[in-house]
């Protein structure tokens, strides 16, 4: 197998794994949006909270970072529920502009609280059974254990959330609230509690994702915005509120972010000097922002969405 082929396969595998992680980042956002039609600007900050929670837990207990997942989930759930009862509930009474600015204030708050508590230097998990471990599957293609695990959890969580929504009483109540909150209220569903639950589940999934991410992605207080944008692009691509769509869209986003890698592998193989001089790495995320913009202009109901 040539260097080009193995390089391409390596990039495809990495993009696929990262794509599933991005899908998991977006899962919480799409749940919250689906149930109550509100966007959470602080979504990336929730992820950041998960990352710090994981680090904090493993340093304080000395346990492996993987053991921190339940802790991160609880933190995320409580954070989501608290945000709902403490802020979002009040925002819902106001105009749309208030929701925007309210969750936006939340983003500023979490970001600067993190700065206050943890300082601005980036941190990453240094030990743990996953950290630094990888599998070579031949031809120089490497799978990092950290990313593999995160992608695995992404699939598990997507399946779990879909199952909860479709097969449990609570899930059905959530879906009913999403379809028509007023009707749900008449049917005796406590919609307020359902909203809080959506925030709780949304928070928990994203903090779990953060706890997995911090094994291979350094955290700093300003990391949230990037992931908020990635999550928005994913959710837009998959259709707002569409859970299955978010999973596939996440993978597409993964490939978008790996465009510079694909470009490098290709230009290396062609060997053209002029082409190799063009570096796309500083535009790594530009493609994601562009994707959001273009999808919203041309396919506002998502790539897989049906036009109303």
């Amino acid at each position: 197998m040539g260097a080009f082929t193995s390089g391409m396969i390596q990039s495809i595998v990495s993009a696929l794994l990262m794509g599933m992680v991005f899908a998991l980042v977006a899962l919480g956002l799409t749940i919250i949006f689906g149930v109550m039609n509100i966007v959470n600007f602080a979504h990336g900050e929730f992820l950041m909270v998960g990352m710090y929670a994981c680090l904090l837990f493993s340093t304080m207990t000395g346990l492996d970072t993987l053991a921190s997942l339940p802790f991160a989930a609880i933190v995320g759930f409580l954070l989501g529920v608290m945000c709902y009862y403490g802020l979002v509930k009040y925002l819902l009474r106001g105009p749309m502009i208030a929701q925007l600015f309210g969750t936006f204030g939340l983003m500023l708050l979490l970001r600067n609280l993190a700065l206050l508590i943890f300082g601005s230097e980036p941190r990453i998990a240094h030990h743990g059974i996953l950290v630094g471990r990888s599998f070579v599957i031949g031809h120089g293609i490497v799978l990092e254990a950290t990313k593999l695990t995160a992608a695995g959890f992404s699939i598990i969580l997507f399946l779990t959330v879909s199952w909860i929504l479709n097969h449990t009483k609570v899930g059905k109540a959530l879906t009913a609230t999403a379809l028509n909150a007023e009707a749900a209220r008449y049917m005796g569903i406590p919609t307020e509690r359902m909203n809080a639950l959506a925030w709780g589940i949304g928070g928990a999934t994203v903090t779990i994702c953060g706890a997995l991410l911090v094994n291979f992605w350094p955290v700093d207080p300003n990391i949230g915005l990037l992931f908020t944008m990635i999550a928005f692009a994913t959710v837009a691509l998959g259709g707002f509120g569409n859970i299955k769509g978010a999973f596939y869209a996440g993978i597409i986003i993964g490939f978008l972010i790996y465009i510079p890698t694909f470009w490098d592998t290709t230009t290396m193989a062609i060997g053209d000097k002029a082409l190799r001089g063009i570096h796309l790495f500083s535009f790594k995320y530009t493609f994601v922002y562009l994707a959001y913009f273009l999808i919203m202009v041309f396919r506002p109901h998502g790539l897989f969405g049906i036009k109303e």
Binding site: L87, Y90, L91, G94, I97, F101, F104, M107, A114, L116
Partner: peptide, 23 residues
Amino acid sequence: EGLAGLDLVIYALIIMIIAAFEP
């Protein structure tokens, strides 16, 4: 020392309160 960000925390609280109670 170590209070970097507190000004923005206060900022954030102001925005949240305004957004929630008097848009």
